[in-house]
Structure formats: structure tokens, C-alpha cells
Amino acid sequence: MIPVFDGHNDFLQRVVASGPQVWTQGDGTGHLDLPRARAGGLVGGFFAIWIPAPHGPNDAAAVALMENPPFAMPLPDQIPYAEALPHAFAQASALKALERTGTLDIVTTARGLRDTVAAGRIAAIMHMEGAEAIPDMDALHLWHAAGLRSLGPVWSRPTAYGHGVPFAFPSSPDTGDGLTPAGKALVRECNALRIMLDLSHLNETGFNDLAALSDAPLVASHSCVHAISESSRNLTDRQLRMIADSRGLVGLNFASSFLREDGRRLPLEGFDTMLRHLDHLLGILGEDGVALGSDFDGALMPRDLPDAAALPALLDAMAAHGYGGTLIRKIASENWIGLLERTWGE
């Protein structure tokens, strides 16, 4: 079985709600747990700490709107630090609880990642999607000491550091202001600590600001191609070329609404559209710059890729499409590991 390393999941919210047994045993819901990870060849991934929004894209009213484009949902309000911190601590604690099961390691170096995979455990990277729980650089150092190695300055709402893109289709990602002065300081400090910076959810002006400041490879952990699906969340060819120029990487998001050409929040049928996105990404980023970023437990999955156990079906579709074994292994896991070596320096 070809190993898979995944660029993004939102599984930790389920652990907070149900306890670590939802990882070890599964509960028949969601997209991810240990049995399905093993069935799908998943060897590791980025486990996101994310602060729930009072109203979000999975609410019934939002789903109805997103099923029938065009739509343009306003950005949610910024979440205060005091409200964000307990959620972030609960999810970080949940990840630590998974580590205590002996089935998963929180990895902080590329060597540690490889050692964990070789030992047959899941390699988990602590990622934070939206920096609401980081009020200053001292707090960033504290989170780094706790294991944080990947950070997205925003989700789809503003923070003290920048502005996210709204859920909108059709829409350019050029939707607002860029990084704040605090956001620019955050980029510099993340570079100094070798914390990977994630461009997914950041608007185009913020993307430009981060690209101009960062000395690390540019990364979008779970994004799709704007030239195929005109969602505000997707990356333009200009953005993809900037990532390629930095020797960075894009993880293909499995969310149906970001893949579908019509932008509808309905399950994608078959693998042809996903392969079109992969072809486009490969044409700009090359064979070393494309990976996977599922968004498991955070988005509506394609009908033929309903959970982690179905990952081999996607790899089989790549092979049937003409991708060779070497390329499939790069996309499935090797490119993420190489990117982390370039970013973390270990």
C-alpha cells in the first residue's frame, strides 16, 4: 500500500467532543479515525487546532446558500483571544491524549517524522488554523515549545494578523487588506522558529505580503485551482507560480465545493475533476510541489472519497490517469516530507 501524508484535517474537534476512543475505535461518523487511517495507508498529517465560529459554512442556512451559486457569505467577526484560548488548549490537549494511546506521535522534526512512520505509528504535526489563540510573540514561543510547527495566520475571518477570504463563488481571492504590522512580525518570528506558515485561507493581499517577507518555502496546505473552480478560497495561477518559485508546495483540498467547476456544495462525482486540478498544479509547480490536503472532518467529501479508508481509490485513479508510481508516491507522501525538511531544516 502506498503511504499517504495528509496536509490538513479537523479531527481534533471530534476528540474534544467524544474523547480519544473516537480515534482508536472510531464511532461511525466523520472522515477519520485510526482504523480508517490504517485501511487507507495514512501514515501522518497536519492535525488542526481551529476555533469554532458562531456561524460557519456547515450551518444549514450556509449549506443551502452554497448549494446554489452565486453566493458571497460575509466574513465572521474576529474572535477575541480570551474566547479562543480555551478552545485551542482543549484541542492541543486532545492531540496530547492521542499521543498517550501509543498509536500516534506529535512530531517536531523531519527526522522524527520519518522515525515515527518507520515504527508504524501515525506522525501528527500540530497545526493552528487561525492565530486567535496567539496574542503575542511570547505566546508563539510557548506554543512552539508545546509542539506547534505549522501555523495559518487566519481562517476565513480576520485576526490581529491579517484577513481571510470569505466563502464566495465566483470570486477572486483579492478580497481585502493584507497583513497587519503584527502579522508581519508573526511571519518573521515563525521564520526564526522554523514554524511552517500556511497560506490557505489568507486573502491575496495577505498572500503577497507573506510571500514578500518569508524566507521559507511558500505552502498552501489545503487549496485548489482557481482557474478550474472560481472560489475565493482557491489559488490563481499567479499565486501558484509564486509558490513554485519558492520551492513550495500545494496540498490538494478534497472539499467538493472547491473542486467543482460550478462551485456547488454537493458531492463531487468520480475523480476526473480532482485529476484536472492535479494536472494543473503539476503543470505549474512540478512533480515536487504537489501533495494532498484532504480537509477531512472539515468539509464535504467527494462521493468516491468519503473518508480516509478510501484514499487508495484516489491513488488508483492517478495510476489509471497515467501517473507513474514515482510521481504517485511523491504526491501521496514524499513531497510533504521533503517540504518539511526544507522548512524545518532537519
Rank of each mutant, 00 (worst) to 15 (best):
A123D: 13
N9L: 09
D10N: 11
D288L: 00
H163W: 08
F207Q: 08
S229V: 11
E129T: 02
A227R: 11
T159H: 09
H55L: 14
R114S: 09
R342C: 07
V225C: 13
M274D: 01
G152P: 10
G293Y: 00
N9F: 02
G19W: 14
M1V: 10
A182T: 00
A48T: 01
F254H: 04
E287K: 02
L292R: 01
G130V: 09
A53D: 15
G178K: 05
L240Y: 02
G345M: 13
E204R: 14
F46T: 11
G26R: 07
A299D: 05
F167Q: 05
D77T: 15
A123S: 11
R276N: 06
M126F: 10
E67S: 13
S256N: 00
L292M: 11
L113C: 10
S200Q: 03
P35A: 14
V187N: 05
A216Y: 03
A124Q: 12
A133P: 09
R264E: 06
D297K: 09
R265G: 00
V290C: 01
A88Y: 08
G283P: 13
P306H: 00
S232P: 15
T109R: 14
E346M: 12
E129M: 05
E261R: 13
S18K: 15
L235T: 05
P69H: 07
A255E: 04
D304N: 11
I51E: 04
R194T: 07
A291W: 00
A160M: 06
L151N: 03
T29P: 01
L268F: 07
L98H: 14
S93C: 08
L339N: 05
I49Y: 03
L275C: 08
A317P: 06
W155K: 04
Q13K: 14
E129Q: 09
F169M: 03
